[in-house]
Amino acid sequence: MSSQNSTNKKKGTRRVRRKTEETRGLSITSLLDVLTIILVFLIKNVSMEAVKISELPDMHYPTTITDEKLLDNPEVVPVKLYQDRVLFGIDNLSMGTPDDIISDANKRDAMRQYFEREMANIPADKKDKACLVVQADAFLRCIYLTEIIRVATYANFPNIYFATIEDPDWLSDFRPASPQ
């Protein structure tokens, strides 16, 4: 009797193990497909140029039909002219306000020294590739541009570029009137 009881007890405590299903590996094939497409898109659009002149978000650019390419392997010195500030170089060295470069002789001198220093830093065999890239607000007066160009040409910058936004249709907004 006691042996029968012990047998029943054993029966009650017996655990039935379920047959566990093998976990299937996560299929990453579809993810890989997506990544391949993105990779192709990115490789097509990536710019390997040493200097990127990209659109500044807080600047209003003039629009042009013309889009000329920078020289091959240029030595670029960017100048940014906002309505309220002038920034020189990749490090955004502040030169005060646009009015300062007209009215303040010290600022003009600092500007000249900056351009001359930049030109001096360019190797002799690449001096003809020196490019001043002016990114200026469309609603600035030309007097500021003229001053910067005057100082840059004084420092022997051979190439000056103006950054714009390409718009092949800007002229279609204008209707001709008869010339006098």
Binding site: L42, I43, I53, S54, D67, V133, N159, Y161, A163
Partner: peptide, 17 residues
């Protein structure tokens, strides 16, 4: 690649001096 991508590039007008 995403760091290097330039989605909106400005156009240029060249002047020779």
């Amino acid at each position: 690649l995403m760091l290097m991508i330039v989605l909106s590039q400005v156009a240029m007008i060249a002047m020779n001096f």
